[in-house]
Write a protein that binds this DNA or RNA. Structure first.
Length: 550
RNA sequence: GGCCCCAUCGUCUAGUCAGGUCCAGGACACCAGGUUUUCAUCCUGGUAACGGGGGUUCGAAUCCCCCUGGGGUCACCA
């Protein structure tokens, strides 16, 4: 029994996705159950929208939960509560926690505390000055009965009375780790608003839900002795723990939303912009944001700014990778490799392989850096070498429906042409979002593009005979070519080049300029077939017109 | 700063637990050639690492200690 327990305060971070993936894989490998629990005890920051987003991201990655909130994602119903261990939103579990609070108070292991934030701040400062950790302890001469009485009318928190002994944590990845009592404090277990803190809720819920294996990030290692102490105090079973290494940017910084603001700010400064390039960001906000290094725009706003400046933002959340056109199976493969590997030289595998081979014994101990270059290489390899044209056409279309409406509309109006576009684009695309670049010329109106100067010089004007002079003759051939399909067109062009004893480049180059305005396009047969014959002839005429005077 | 964790190519890592088969293997990136009508592919080759110092041992990337370096954590956030 494993669980993923996100706090719904934002999008699913790529690191969180890896945690979820490993929990899922561990359960699958063991023939166990994977459970989803929503840790929404921070009522100010939690939202159902965030739950929705996280759940959709998990589903996109192919990580389905056996037990948990019953939610439909893309028509698939997930979750359920066959054992009756729910509800799965911590905010709905108040009665369960209250019973445990009462139990601890009765045992004399929990007590109310009335310290103000100012008092606590002063204690922290004192600890810092004394060069030791801040550790809260029950004051000398504390009168529990009096405090309990006072707590009836006064705002307070409930603290756990930490037993005076060291705690050893048994970790599947790191081994035995012992924490001295001097580092473990009387932590808050119930906030002033009555909600349990994370430490308390996680211990109670894992036990009540029968969780046997907890896999989480190494940032939680220092929390674990607190959880273990709480389990002992409550007489609850302890799950097995496996703490995994963390993921950072290549430069060693944390992968955080802030990176996007940083990138956008740099782009704005490089472009020497003084006013907001995006409608969603008003002038005042823009100036403040630009001046203040720590200030952040919303996800949508940064996106708008970046779009206006045509810069790519670093992907941080699962949603970012999805929007950037990475395939879910590639993301799964890549993040699995950050901290786990099956041994030997194997590195390309799918979720099914993970489900069969995953084990905490092969989780690494050291942190890793997220190298987008390698992710991109995996994605390109998958698209170009492991996918069929049909499969690519479908996935690309699904992507466009969500992230590129104009492209989706174009795809919609002629499915046969879309299949051809996919065939032409697939061998030269690395991500679904860059795929449209290869066939963009076909979407433009016939007179909707300009001519690249270099391409014109080289493809049209240079040499003897020059490309421009070849155009009328190849036009005549194309006028007669039947059927208007890649193979026949290719054959006609080759035949023409041979008959005229011209190198193929001598024909291809001017055609590319005429049809795309550039020196680059997919193979000619496919490129021409993507356009109608009328379109091709019109573009050739326009090109001849445009360059004959010059 | 206290406590805790970690340490193999630029990056992800195999090898470490059971020391010799490792003058350290794979992948991405990079460099050089080649194939290709453009682009993208593809092929061949190459550069590149056991953080430092002490031990233990016939023998250490592998075991021990110290140092150095990196990271986590020290909330009424999770």
């Amino acid at each position: 029994m494993t669980r993923f327990a996100p706090s719904p305060t934002g999008h699913l971070h790529i690191g969180g996705a890896r945690t979820a993936l490993f929990c899922w894989a561990a359960a699958r490998r063991a023939g166990g159950t994977f459970l989803l629990r929503i840790e929404d005890t921070d009522r100010k920051r939690s939202s159902f929208d965030a739950v929705r987003g996280i759940v959709e991201d998990l589903a996109w990655l192919g990580i389905g939960w056996d037990e948990g909130p019953e939610l439909g994602v893309d028509g698939v119903e997930l979750g359920g509560d066959p054992r009756g261990v729910g509800p799965f939103f911590q905010s709905d579990r108040g009665d369960l926690y209250d019973a445990k609070f009462a139990e601890l108070i009765e045992k004399g292991l929990a007590y109310p505390a009335f310290d103000t934030p100012e008092e606590l701040g002063a204690m922290r400062k004192a600890a810092e000055a004394a060069k030791r950790s801040f550790v809260y302890r029950q004051p000398e001469g504390y009168d529990l009965a009096a405090a309990l009485e006072r707590a009836k009318t006064e705002s307070h928190v409930l603290r756990f009375k930490m037993p005076a002994e060291p705690v050893t944590v048994h970790d599947e990845v790191l081994g035995e780790v012992t924490f001295p009592y001097e580092e473990l404090d009387d932590l808050v277990i119930r906030k002033a608003d009555g909600m349990p803190t994370y430490h308390f809720a996680v211990v109670v819920d894992d036990a009540l839900m029968g969780v046997t294996d907890v896999l989480r990030g190494q940032e939680h290692l220092n929390n674990t002795p607190k959880h273990v102490a709480l389990q002992r105090a409550l007489g609850l079973p302890a799950p097995r723990y496996a703490h995994m290494p963390l993921i950072f940017n290549v430069d060693g910084t944390k992968m955080s939303k802030r990176d996007k603001d940083k990138t956008a700010k740099k782009a704005v400064k490089d472009a020497k912009l003084e006013s907001s390039p995006a409608e969603s960001v008003d002038g005042d906000e823009f100036t403040k944001w630009l001046k203040d290094k720590t200030r952040q725009l919303t996800r949508e706003q940064v996106g708008d700014v970046a779009k206006a400046l045509d810069v790519a933002l670093p992907e941080i959340d699962v949603e970012d990778f999805r929007a950037a056109g990475y395939l879910p199976e590639v993301v799964v493969n890549f993040i699995a490799l950050l901290g786990w590997n099956p041994g030997g030289d194997v590195e390309r595998f799918d979720a099914a392989f993970l489900a069969e081979n995953f084990g905490t014994d092969r989780i690494g101990k050291s942190n890793s850096k997220f190298d987008r270059e390698k992710l991109l290489a995996f994605n390109a390899d998958t698209i170009q070498h492991q996918m069929s044209d049909e499969d690519f056409a479908d996935q690309w279309y699904e992507w466009a429906r969500r992230f590129d409406e104009r492209l989706a509309a174009w795809a919609q109006c002629d499915r046969k042409r879309w299949a051809l576009a996919a065939k032409a684009a697939r061998p030269r695309t690395k991500t679904l979002s860059d795929a449209s670049g290869a066939i963009a010329f076909a979407i433009e109106p016939d007179d909707g593009f300009g001519y690249d100067e270099k391409a014109v010089k080289k493809g049209l004007l240079k040499g003897e005979p020059n490309g421009l002079s070849v155009l009328p003759d190849i036009r005549a051939v194309l006028e007669m070519t039947e059927p208007w399909e890649p193979e026949a067109i290719e054959k006609a062009i080759h035949g023409f080049a041979e008959a005229r004893e011209l190198g193929l480049g001598k024909v291809a180059a001017p055609l590319r300029v005429a049809l795309t305005g550039t020196a680059v396009s997919p193979p000619l047969g496919e490129s021409l077939a993507l356009l109608t014959r009328e379109s091709v002839l019109a573009r050739i005429d326009r090109c001849i017109d445009a360059h004959t005077e010059a």
